[in-house]
């Protein structure tokens, strides 16, 4: 690791004051410390924000509010999260390992860097790490890479599971700088790589992610996160889906739906066309298959991930069957 100085502020104001160009905020450290060891991140100052009052998991009429420093395991375990937004709990529990979930903060989860092996390998070309150097994944091992939202500059997958559930739920993130506080929809927070894959989100220099809000959605109690991966546990998604269904049980139809996908996109991927194709239809296998059919139609595959569009559709159908029943 390169040398840095270390501050331990006790307030948001002090933390923002400590931040300067080239500094990094430290929460759980599971991304930052890892990437500092690789010398992929070389901050001149590390601002330890763990003493800031950015805690709390609460539910009120405005929805679910989670402080940025809440740990993944605590959010997953929270009774209100489990009962009202099961897909958030499930997405968290299917992420990483118990040790990492105990460490990693919610804010850090949303800001984690891609797990693309070429991004992490300083000896290879990567436009995200070194703009203009090229993308080794285009001609390399691409099994884990994205097929939606890619560009000629970058095909890195967004690695977060819980961000997929949060995008499906229209979650918003709260950002604070010395100049202003603002709130941004998580779906808009993440950028497509385009020609500038090094710019991953809307966070500005010196800005701190302080928390997130999930709007109320009573029928999200019928929701699930399904993750398909090469190993049974402790692995990133090849494809994953977060699905919530509002069922009219008397008529056997779908009133409303939320659908998003992970493991396939350069950012968490909302599937609004799938949602529209479900609404008003019978909760039945034929509906799910028809709704899932166009998913991934616009995918750009690489030699090792040509299976992903079909895997995405199958994952969608399986999750919908589990939530809505076959007929």
């Amino acid at each position: 690791m390169r040398p840095y100085d270390f501050t331990r502020p006790r307030s948001v104001g002090a933390a923002l004051g400590d931040a300067h160009e080239g500094s990094a905020f430290l929460a759980g450290g599971t991304t930052l410390v890892d990437l500092m060891k690789l010398e992929l991140m070389t901050p001149s100052r590390v601002v330890d924000i763990n003493r800031l009052p950015l805690r709390g998991i609460t539910v009120d009429r405005g929805g679910l509010h989670v402080g940025a420093l809440e740990r993944m395991s605590d959010v997953a375990d929270h009774q209100d999260v489990r009962s009202r937004y099961p897909m958030i709990s499930q997405a968290l529990e299917l992420s990483a390992s118990p040790q990492i979930r105990n460490m990693a903060s919610m804010g850090g989860n949303l800001l984690q860097r891609t797990r693309c092996g070429y991004f992490r390998d300083l000896t290879t070309a990567c436009n995200k790490r070194e703009p203009g150097s090229g993308c080794a994944a285009l001609t390399g091992h691409s099994r884990m890479h994205a097929v939606l939202g890619t560009s000629d500059a970058c095909v890195a997958t967004h690695p977060s599971d819980v961000a997929v559930a949060l995008v499906a739920l229209d979650a918003r993130v709260h950002l604070e700088s010395l100049r202003e506080k603002r709130t941004v929809a998580l779906a808009d927070f993440y950028r497509l790589p385009g020609h500038t894959p090094q710019v991953e989100n809307e966070l500005r220099a010196g800005e701190l992610l302080t928390g997130l809000t999930v709007p109320p959605l009573p029928w999200a109690s019928r929701s699930a996160y399904l993750k398909i991966r090469d190993r049974r546990s402790y692995e990133f998604a090849l494809a994953s889906v977060a699905v919530a269904l509002d069922l009219d049980l008397d008529r056997g139809t779908i009133r409303d739906a939320r659908v998003a996908a992970g493991g396939v996109g350069t950012r968490p991927w909302r599937l609004e066309a799938v949602e529209r194709a479900l609404v008003g239809r019978p909760a039945a296998l034929a509906t799910y298959e028809a709704a899932a059919a166009p998913a991934g139609e616009d995918a750009r595959t690489l030699p090792h991930n040509m299976f992903k569009p079909a895997l995405l559709r199958r994952t969608l159908v399986r999750a919908l069957v589990a939530l809505g029943g076959r007929s």
Binding site: F6, R8, L26, G29, V33, D48, P98, I100, N102
Partner: peptide, 15 residues
């Protein structure tokens, strides 16, 4: 009281 990975934990953050 919680299990964590000591390789990704900075001693400086453990006051």
């Amino acid at each position: 009281g919680r299990r964590v990975l000591s390789c990704l934990t900075l001693a400086a953050a453990l006051d």
